[in-house]
Amino acid sequence: MDTAPAARTKRRRRSLGWVAVVPLLAFVAVAFGLPALAMLDGAFTAKDPATGATSYTLDNLTTSLKGAYLTALLGSVKLSAVSAALGTLVGLPLAQAVVSSRFRALREAVLTASGVLANFGGVPLAFAFVATLGNAGVLTRHFGLTDKGWDLYSFWGLVIVYLYFLIPLMVLTVTPALDGLRVQWREAAQNNGATGVQYWRFVALPVLLPTLLGGFVLLFGSAFAAYATAAAMVGSSIPLVTLQIADAISGNVLVGQENVALALSLDMVLVAGLVMAVYLPLQRRSARWLA
């Protein structure tokens, strides 16, 4: 039997598939590749203010890992880690309540609202919280929260604001994994005398662990990259790397720190790269378990 025509047909299909991908690759190269190259070039470039000559150096990266810049980077990591951990802990039971609900309309409503709220951020979100829980907010005055020590413009206040869009994101992330838990697993556990707590401890949570860790990483990345909400709410009162980048570019603190801002951006890219290096294997493992 001659297999040559079939082989040629297969190669032709592969060639056409690559042709179809070319526009996407071109878009990625222009939208992401060129800015990445410009950021790399600027992060390692220094300009002599006297002569205007440029040279490659590590001074920008060294500066970005010292003093206030390092404090801001660590502050962003801390804020993102705490927000992501709380979002994961709260989002899992909420998603389970939605999945186990008998009301299909409730499930669709919650998932639709989560899709909207997960993308609701920036200045509108900051304004909503300031008007509600700020120093002169409606609930703050009504319940006398200021006298009880409440301060929206603090680390924990910012965490609460971030949870507004991180918890819905976690619900969207973990719901497909909860749907993938098979009824036969629970029945088998019950037939062997396991309680509900034992089922979750020894069966469900080990299966869901890659998804939960992946969701935590996704929430961490989302909080780490957030800028407009924090900028509108706290300004520079809380050290965050995104706010430091904005200050360095605009010259609010020191003039001519644009390349340091690019070095800070490179630091963020490296942190995001580490996050994705953890996230992708976890997603593959979770998909293999729940397939």
Rank of each mutant, 00 (worst) to 15 (best):
L106T: 11
R284N: 10
A6Y: 00
A261D: 08
N119T: 15
K78P: 08
V278M: 03
W289A: 13
L16R: 06
A287E: 02
G273W: 06
G149D: 02
N60G: 11
G251A: 09
A68V: 15
P176M: 07
A7D: 14
G215L: 05
G235E: 11
P281M: 08
A20S: 10
Q283Y: 06
Y69D: 11
G221V: 11
G33Q: 08
G17T: 07
L218N: 05
A230I: 07
Q244R: 15
T175F: 00
D151G: 03
G91D: 02
D48S: 05
L274H: 07
T140A: 00
A113C: 11
N119P: 03
L106I: 02
L178I: 13
R13G: 09
Q184A: 14
A6Q: 12
A38P: 05
A128T: 14
A53Q: 12
V30A: 12
V278Y: 02
V253Y: 06
F216V: 05
P168D: 00
G17E: 01
L65A: 10
T242K: 07
D147I: 12
V183C: 10
A177W: 00
T62S: 15
P49C: 13
A189E: 03
E187L: 08
V174R: 07
T71G: 12
L117Y: 01
V28H: 03
R13W: 01
T195E: 08
A194T: 03
A43D: 01
P49A: 10
V203S: 10
S80K: 05
A72L: 09
P124N: 11
S114H: 04
T57R: 05
N119H: 05
L290N: 09
V171P: 01
R284V: 11
R288M: 13
P35R: 13
A177T: 02
V260F: 01
L73M: 13
L61G: 07
T88Y: 03
L34P: 08
Y56C: 11
L37T: 14
K148I: 11
L264T: 06
L290I: 13
